[in-house]
């Protein structure tokens, strides 16, 4: 159903907005608007149908406490003057009493993140049926294309598999082994550092090793 076909659109072909009809039902139209709407209401079935729905909506709004103070007063004084409308209000109140708790529970049960995610989801319109169908069609197209490619072009498939399989078979290079020589070097560096820490004054006589920046250590411990 499109919004143009919607008889509750804010402003549609008959020229009266929902708000105007609400004010009419509450007896709050201006002297110039009132006869126009009366005339149209008598002859226009569409407007008649809209007014009936807005009548129900007003009863719902009153029952849920959504009307302003002045509208509530108008509702009680000017709207609630017929038995039919009183019955409508009674049903609105019953529906509100019956279902309001259930809805609050349902809403409270949902985590905040879920609601935030949903908002984002709905903001982009991804919940629309058209999107769902489009995504479904896209996935089907990809699947179909892949199957077709494999079936129709076996050589291509073979090439792809050849390219992929050797790459997977390459093993990582083994780590360099820790030899006795390197271990010895590490140990000597460690010892040297310890000596420097506790006997900083005597570090000067140590000969620099070719792989170790002794001058830097000296400079640091002198400070």
């Amino acid at each position: 159903m499109t919004d143009m076909a919607n008889p509750l659109n804010s402003v549609i072909s008959d020229g009266f907005s929902d708000e105007t009809i609400r004010r009419f039902l509450l007896g709050n139209l201006s002297a110039s608007e009132q006869p126009l709407l009366e005339q149209r209401l008598m002859s226009d079935i569409g407007l008649d149908a809209r007014a009936r729905l807005i009548e129900l909506d007003l009863a719902d709004d009153y029952a849920c406490g959504r009307l302003t103070t002045s509208d509530r007063r108008l509702f009680e004084q000017r709207f609630l003057v017929t038995a039919d409308r009183q019955r409508k209000l009674r049903v609105s109140e019953l529906l509100h009493d019956r279902f309001s708790f259930a809805g609050a529970t349902e809403l409270a049960a949902r985590p905040e993140t879920d609601r935030g995610g949903n908002r984002l989801w709905h903001f982009f319109g991804l919940n629309r049926r058209a999107w769902r169908i489009a995504f479904g069609a896209l996935i089907l197209l990809i699947l179909f294309g892949t199957v077709l490619l494999v079936v129709k072009e076996p050589r291509l498939a073979e090439r792809i598999t050849k390219k992929i399989i050797p790459r997977r078979s390459i093993r990582p290079a083994p780590r360099a082994k820790l030899t006795i020589r390197t271990m010895f070097r590490v140990r000597s560096i460690h010892q040297l550092l310890l000596q420097c820490r506790f006997m900083t004054q005597q570090c000067d006589h140590l000969k620099p090793l070719p792989y170790f920046p002794l001058h830097l250590i000296r400079a640091r411990y002198r400070r």
Partner: peptide, 30 residues
């Protein structure tokens, strides 16, 4: 679900319901 909850919670729930149904709030109301 249309008559569930109160005030802001009701508005949230109706928006959610409209989004789930893939229709505008006005169409949902109708």
């Amino acid at each position: 679900r249309y008559y569930a909850a109160d005030k802001q919670a009701k508005i949230d729930l109706r928006k959610q319901l409209a989004a789930e149904s893939g229709v505008s709030l006005n169409t949902l109301r109708l």
